[in-house]
Amino acid sequence: MSTKPAMVSVRNLTRRFDVSKPWLNRVVERLPKSILTAVSDVSFDIPAKETYALVGESGSGKSTIGKMMVGLLTPTDGSVTIGGVDLSRETSAKAMDAARERIQMVFQDPYASLNPRWRVRNIITEPVAARGGDTTGLAERLLEQVGLSAEDADKYPHEFSGGQRQRLCIARALSSNPRFIVCDEPTSALDVSVQAQVLNLMSDLKTDLGLTFLFISHDLTVVRHMADRIGVLYLGRLVEEAAPDALFTTPRHPYTKMLLEAAPKLDGFGRETEPPTGEIPDPINPPKGCAYHPRCPLAQDRCRSERPVLRSVGESRSACHFAEKLVAD
């Protein structure tokens, strides 16, 4: 783990959702309660001014973690500590509010994340206005900071393209002077050429303003470009954590390895590889032991019964009983 002091610290984070049918149906159809564990015992640290990325496929719990880290969801178990304030246990409303002012989020869908009936000026200054702050000239300054023009302040969101809207979302996130920004798939709805613009903007802001990022994505290539450290999630569990280059050159978990091999390559002309087998299991009844064992080529009896813990393997952390063996292969 990194030795730098952590700005954000996540410990044993767990979130369960009750997805049971209504009480009456359960009684009539004699169904048990069904509990979906979206996030299970996840711990990691983000040092100040670094970008930590969470990657995973659908159902991996990456968005749920993001929402818990900004306080949109409360953890069932475990804690999120940001700048020394434990978001779910802090009792002082003042300290809590001060902490939340420093946390912001950029969402996935640039079409749904801006109120269509509001003018851009009001949208991007809302975080400040809501706290009674001074917003004179703020909208203009923010717009220019994200590469739009000050005249755009009086337009409505529908007058902007997807990429420009994502710039607006970034402007809103910046307005309250945050220290920590969670980006939930910020470019997955954008075209490649526009994605590059938005990613560059975020890199620039990171260096200029000294921001700390949590970057959530399903796209390994984007993550590799943006992150200082990457966590790989599978079915709500953190299965591997490593620096980008280490992750790509020496994956320490068979799932990471599979993801890397399955991603289409720009130079993979006529590539003939055996595609991965199986699909992501039902999160309501996850496999016993290691969640990945039904798809894993290395699976042994131990994997079917004992859930591996995340442990240090070289410079990385991996939750695989046979992480050392994987590297040897």
Partner: peptide, 15 residues
Amino acid sequence: SAPLASLGQTRLRQI
């Protein structure tokens, strides 16, 4: 502008 094309650089090439 694909992130892979700018491997090891801080900024992506963009249109």
